[in-house]
């Protein structure tokens, strides 16, 4: 008999494919559950979910609750919330982990508030303290905060894709697949009519060898375009910080860091950004890091391999020329 409630992962599928973050979370949930001597349970909602539960089991789940119905094919806020909340009330999970995806970022607070419990946003690490309380780590001004939810249960957290790695699948693992009952009367105040995905332009951030990221130091759209030109010259993906997104120079999709994308390029060049930890945690695994900032005291210079103190709007065009010269030489050799 398990004394602790299970560790839960709300898994997610899009067009019937499990998202990588769901498997990554199963891997981390497994570690937490082993320490708590309890089980890992996944909740998966979709249509035609036949093989996906076994994938979750191979990644480390002991039990998978599957909601399988045409009405569940796309994320439906009310129905998904109702199913998760009812099951959570029955199963009493100790911990609930959800990916920081578009769905997770909406579903997690709907579930947390319904269960009257706390929810930590976009964690970059999850560990258990000496009392087996979940410490959810988030970067914040000048440090790494540990957030705990000492009394209310479950302890909930969202985590971005790429924070944890996908566990090696063990096809010999066995687990239980439990069908969830779908209510006959569907909740009727909100409906997802369709989900459209567009091909994004340029090099995708997650798989890019080189990432050029720009921040507030760009100054204006013209300055931003200079940074974008550097990315183009290097055939790099263009990333950003929140201030650059807030200024409207680029889309939220390009934001790197705690509440954005996690990247692991060979080369990272941060231009006109101050090295806020919220951003820098997104590039922890970069091989070589360069920063350009006009303030010699900027914290970014404590976090990179090469620092260039200069006005990025003046320096970057020169850098672009030098890179082009270098590339031309490579071709002629």
């Amino acid at each position: 008999m398990e004394t602790n409630g299970p560790v839960w992962v709300i898994a997610e599928q899009m067009d019937c494919r499990l998202l990588a973050v769901s498997l990554q979370l199963i891997g981390q949930a497994r570690k937490l559950a082993d320490r708590l001597e309890t089980s890992v349970e996944a909740v998966l909602m979709g249509d035609n979910m036949d093989l996906q539960p076994q994938q979750l089991i191979a990644a480390g789940a002991d039990r998978v609750y599957v909601g399988n119905a045409p009405d569940l094919a796309d994320y439906q806020p009310e129905l998904y919330t109702e199913l998760v909340v009812n099951l959570a009330k029955a199963r009493q999970p100790e911990i609930v982990l959800i990916g920081s995806t578009a769905m997770g970022r909406e579903l997690a607070p709907l579930v947390a508030a319904s269960l009257k419990t706390g929810l930590t946003a976009h964690c970059i690490d999850l560990v258990l303290d000496e009392n087996n309380i979940l410490e959810a780590r988030i970067p914040a001004y000048g440090g790494l905060l540990s957030i705990i939810c000492p009394e209310k249960r479950p302890q909930m957290a969202t985590v971005a894709a790429g924070v944890f790695s996908i566990p090696e699948p063990d096809e010999t693992r066995t687990g239980e697949v439990v069908r969830m009952e779908i209510p006959e009367h569907l909740p009727g105040r909100i409906q997802t009519l369709e989900i459209i995905q567009e091909e994004s332009e340029g090099v995708p951030l997650e798989s890019a060898n080189i990432v050029v990221a720009g921040g507030a130091g760009a100054g204006d759209l013209e300055g931003w375009n200079i940074i974008a030109a550097l990315a183009k010259t290097l055939n790099a993906a263009l990333g950003s910080t929140r201030p650059a997104v807030d200024e409207g120079w680029t889309d939220l999709e390009t934001m790197i860091g705690q509440s954005g994308k996690m990247v692991a390029p060979e080369l990272y060049i941060g231009v006109g950004l101050s090295g806020e930890l919220q951003h820098m945690v997104g590039i922890r695994n970069a091989k070589v890091m360069v920063a350009v900032n006009n303030d010699p005291k900027s914290p970014v210079f404590e976090q990179v391999d090469y620092g260039i103190v200069d006005d990025c709007r003046e320096f970057v065009p020169v850098l672009i020329e030098k890179i082009k010269e270098y590339k031309e030489k490579q071709v002629t050799c």
Binding site: T117, E135, G143, L144, L145, S146, I147, C149, P150, L277
Partner: peptide, 10 residues
């Protein structure tokens, strides 16, 4: 429900 329990400097 949530509180900050620790601060580690970067």
């Amino acid at each position: 429900p949530t509180i900050v329990s620790k601060l580690d400097s970067k």
